[in-house]
């Protein structure tokens, strides 16, 4: 277990180094997110109302997340995947990659939340809940998109295939996130945390169980 954990951490550290060594990829994701938020601002130039706030918030996060996490296997060369295949167990790779993507998407979510609250205004006393919703959303998105990225890399597809395969699988988690955010912003209702945590756990468990079959291919 201990050595398994340390191997998981070394995959994680590897992911972290490659992402940050390659400055244009991380800055590309940031610019993508910021530009989408700015386009939204240009469309409204004021607070767009709760419904549009919620929809745009999650759609921008979804697109940025697909862009960021959808590449996690695609950017690796065939040889590197073979090298990983010799060194690590499949479970370690998928967990480490999901963890890395989770942190990346949560950072994107924080950026998104800051910009939205600054530009479009927020609602008093909902910031903590919104932070937690963004955290759980980033978790679910990263679990699905990491697995989808692996499928796409095996199919020699590109990032647009990642969006085609990823979006339909994300319907349930996005629906719950949007409904919870709306209920929170409109009526101050606390979201159904248990439901979200259960769905996130289901998503991670599915990708953990299914990944070994892709790994051998």
């Amino acid at each position: 277990m201990n050595s398994g954990l340390s191997r998981l951490l070394s995959v994680f550290a590897y992911e972290f180094r490659t992402e940050f060594r390659n400055k244009e990829s991380i800055s590309g994701i940031l610019v993508y997110a910021l530009a989408s938020i700015f386009i939204t601002w240009l469309c409204f130039l004021q607070s767009p109302g709760t419904q549009a706030w919620t929809g745009l918030y999650w759609i921008i996060l979804l697109f940025a997340a697909t862009n960021a996490a959808g590449r996690s296997f695609i950017r690796e060369s065939r040889g590197l995947q073979l090298f990983h295949y010799m060194l690590f167990r499949p479970g370690e790779v998928i967990l480490a990659k999901s963890l890395f993507n989770f942190l990346l998407l949560f950072a994107l979510g924080l950026l998104n939340l800051c910009c939205f609250t600054l530009m479009f205004g927020g609602k008093e006393g909902t910031l903590n809940e919104l932070l937690l919703l963004t955290l759980l959303g980033a978790f679910g998105l990263s679990a699905v998109l990491t697995l989808v990225s692996s499928i796409v890399s095996k199919a020699y597809g590109n990032a647009s295939l990642a969006a085609v395969l990823g979006f339909p699988l994300l319907f349930p988690v996005l629906l719950i996130l949007v409904k919870s955010t709306l209920a929170l912003l409109e009526g101050g209702q606390s979201p159904n945390w248990l439901m979200l945590v259960a769905l996130d756990a289901l998503l991670l468990a599915l990708s953990y169980i299914l990944f070994p079959y892709l790994w051998r291919e």
């Binding site: 699905v144 095996k154 339909p168 699988l169 319907f171 599915l206 892709l214 291919e217």
Partner: peptide, 16 residues
């Protein structure tokens, strides 16, 4: 390869 990737996707898809 198609069979394997499609099988993985279909299991995930059915649960979702």
């Amino acid at each position: 390869k198609r069979a394997k990737l499609a099988a993985v996707y279909s299991i995930f898809a059915f649960v979702m």
